[in-house]
């Protein structure tokens, strides 16, 4: 149950994270997880408001305190999880948690034995409000696309960088990616010495540094200035040998798309 909660901690898991999780758990748990993430929901035990009522009664929490708590924690599944004291005893697996859930007493016993994050997830399962569906894996492996792009902005926490392509006289933002390439410390040192403007946490640099990006595909997106979203994009390399003036335009990239 803890592993399953960790898997879902950052929202819907990526296929990679899911397969890593599957290698760590026993067959029963992996089967239960697969069912849940394929969209099948377990039978609802009770609505979240009822679970909260059981917890309030079991912990002797008066109504006026529940009301005060709801003001800063309006999610009843989360509130029911937080009101129980820290977990004691051994933690049941995901499969055990779901199989033994038929009464208020079962619910309280199981919920008490779970740490906070797993408890919230358990409450969502018990109240039938669990929503997480694994994206169907992309079946057609493609040869990755490549493009050159110009660094325009850096957010030091991360750190992440915004890359842009020339379009007419302007630079149009293409994508924002985390910097993990080996030359990152040197790049940040350069950026730190060349900040031209600040927008909140963002730092603007002169558009002189060229990078090679790699991506799995592109899809139209009317909400982006560039009109597209790159799929599975990553920073491949810093290209100090290339000049910004030589970077192909946005139109040239769009022409590549099928």
């Amino acid at each position: 149950m803890i592993r399953f909660a960790q898997l879902l901690a950052q929202g819907t898991p990526t296929p990679d994270a899911f397969s890593a999780y599957m290698t760590q758990v026993d067959p029963q748990e992996s089967e239960a997880a697969q069912r849940l993430l394929s969209g099948q929901r377990p039978t609802r035990l009770a609505p979240a408001a009822t679970l909260l009522g059981w917890v309030a009664q079991a912990t002797d929490t008066p109504d006026f305190l529940i009301d005060a708590c709801l003001k800063i924690c309006p999610d009843k599944a989360e509130l029911a999880a937080l009101l129980l004291p820290p977990a004691t005893g051994t933690t049941p697996s995901l499969a055990q948690s779901l199989a033994n859930l038929t009464s208020a007493a079962d619910y309280l016993t199981l919920a008490r034995s779970l740490p906070p994050e797993a408890r919230i997830l358990f409450n969502r399962l018990a109240s039938g409000t669990f929503r997480a569906k694994l994206a169907p894996p992309t079946t057609t492996p493609q040869t990755p696309g490549h493009c050159l792009a110009i660094l325009t902005l850096i957010d030091p926490s991360g750190p992440t960088a915004t890359f842009a392509l020339p379009h007419g006289a302007a630079l149009v933002p293409l994508t924002r990616l985390r910097l993990t390439i080996p030359g990152t410390p040197a790049l940040l040192a350069w950026a730190r010495a060349n900040v031209t403007d600040r927008f909140g946490p963002l730092r603007q640099m002169p558009p002189t540094q060229v990078f090679e990006l790699e991506f799995d595909g592109m899809t139209p997106n009317a909400r982006r200035k560039s009109g597209i979203t790159l799929l599975g994009a990553r920073v491949k390399a810093w290209r100090p040998d290339s000049r910004a003036a030589d970077v192909p335009t946005l139109s040239a990239l769009l022409a590549q798309s099928p």
């Binding site: 030091p156 750190p159 910097l179 990152t184 410390p185 940040l188 040192a189």
Partner: peptide
């Protein structure tokens, strides 16, 4: 800007 020295 200090944070930019931290690297990944």
């Amino acid at each position: 800007d200090w944070a930019m020295g931290l690297g990944p």
